[in-house]
Write a protein that binds this DNA or RNA. Structure first.
Lengths: 256, 256
DNA sequence: CGTCCTAAG
DNA sequence: CTTAAGACG
């Protein structure tokens, strides 16, 4: 099962790039964040994909946030009619979930938390709710994939040395500890498992000052998996050649 | 003296088209409307033209309205230091004026008047103020050119037959009569003098429904001149090949 | 910087 | 349709 998470920063602006990328990469599961569109605004071409069935969690606030989870029709046929959605646990369309075979896939778009103190606290609360949710799924015996834009660089290694700053939102100890607690419910960082200690692995770059060309990035997009799944991962890649959004797609291949 | 009036719909979006057009057309006087920029936002290339000196009446409301009058440096040198500006008679940067030799050139951007009844009344008041202003200049013996985006199609001939509608703002009898009264202070319509009865002469087309390609336009941009000047006009053209704005430049050549 | 919103034309 | 401002990231 090839799974990808990608913050596409506007599904309307990304229509062509996204169609092309899906055709080439052929992911079995594709979690999208920041679609910035409601159900009436999503391009028809993406609503009517021949290859995939989509769960849309469209933007509740116009042009803001929004997530989706696309599952290849092959996989659905193989595993039966096992796709369903749950309401997001906030009013900003930040989560989407599907059950595929015996695996639960959760896609999240964690709030940035930089607006003010309340927003930052809400970001930490988001992780706490996530922790509760994944703990209960894992306790029930599910294999779980939790992926998406965490809006936190989990370790110093996940930020370019020139951009490291423990005061910066996205690098603060409390956020990193919140991720620790989510992972402690039973997850491994699939990309880091396969690229242990490797420097310069980023999935987001600011649009300004040629940050992408200079690789002054952060790793904000993660695929966490429960141990059996994580052990089955044969590859994990960040496709930094796909530079249409400020985030690049992060993919892995599970053998299940 | 070659004079042009052009509603450019955003001087920042028009920077390259405008530079190119000035280089090719070499107008002696260029009246611009809807520059949609204040003095700090006007592109440097246009502030530092080698060929022309500009009077900017920058947008008072951010990104809204704004006019300018550019005079070729040759003309200034020929006629001495005769360029000056007057404050606009409203708070929306809609007028600009220069004295060039013995001729007064006035550039105006008349309000559209479509928002509500008060706005429409204000449009009519604008013409009344204009009438007072031009009457006094003409009484003082000046040659006067009044040009710009009048936001009124003066005659039925100035609107494509399929778009004619006496209820439509820009075609209503009171607006047309307001133009009549301004012209009665002593002006002739230079373009119409040289294209009497000619159909399909428009200077504005809606951006939508391929109106420009189908010539479903209106003539909204006029050059009015006092009789001696008007009689000297050897040509008047609408350069509809310049299609970067929704208005095309309207030019005439006076022999003075 | 880029995407989307809204106001205005 | 197009421009530009403003919110947000």
């Amino acid at each position: 099962m090839k799974l990808t998470t990608w913050n596409i920063n506007g599904i309307r602006a990304r229509e062509q790039a996204l169609l092309r990328w899906i055709a080439v990469a052929q992911p079995d599961v594709l979690c999208l964040q920041e679609i910035k569109a409601d159900l009436t605004q999503i391009p028809e071409s993406l609503q009517n994909l021949a290859t995939h069935t989509a769960l849309w969690n469209g933007s509740a606030k116009k042009g803001y946030s929004g997530t989706a989870l696309l599952v290849s029709n092959t996989l659905i046929q193989t595993h039966g009619d096992a796709v369903f959605s749950i309401p997001s646990f906030d009013a900003e369309s930040r989560t989407v979930q599907a059950v595929i075979g015996k695996t639960v896939v959760i896609g999240v778009y964690v709030p940035r938390g930089e607006k003010d103190a309340a927003h930052y606290k809400w970001k930490l609360d988001f992780f706490t709710a996530l922790e509760t949710h994944t703990a209960s799924l894992i306790a029930a015996g599910h294999d779980v994939v939790l992926c998406g834009d965490m809006n936190v660089a989990h370790k110093d290694l996940d930020v370019h040395p020139s951009q490291q700053n423990p005061e910066a939102c996205g690098q603060r100890p409390p956020e990193r500890e919140a991720i620790d607690r989510v992972m402690a419910t039973g997850f491994q960082d699939v990309y880091r498992n396969l690229h242990a200690g490797e420097e310069g692995c980023f999935s987001w770059w600011p649009y300004w000052r040629n940050a992408r060309e200079r690789n002054l990035g952060w790793r904000l997009d993660y695929i966490y998996a429960t141990p059996r799944l994580a052990a089955s991962a044969t590859a994990a890649v960040i496709d930094s050649s796909e530079a249409s959004s400020d985030h690049s797609p992060v993919s892995t291949q599970f053998v299940i």
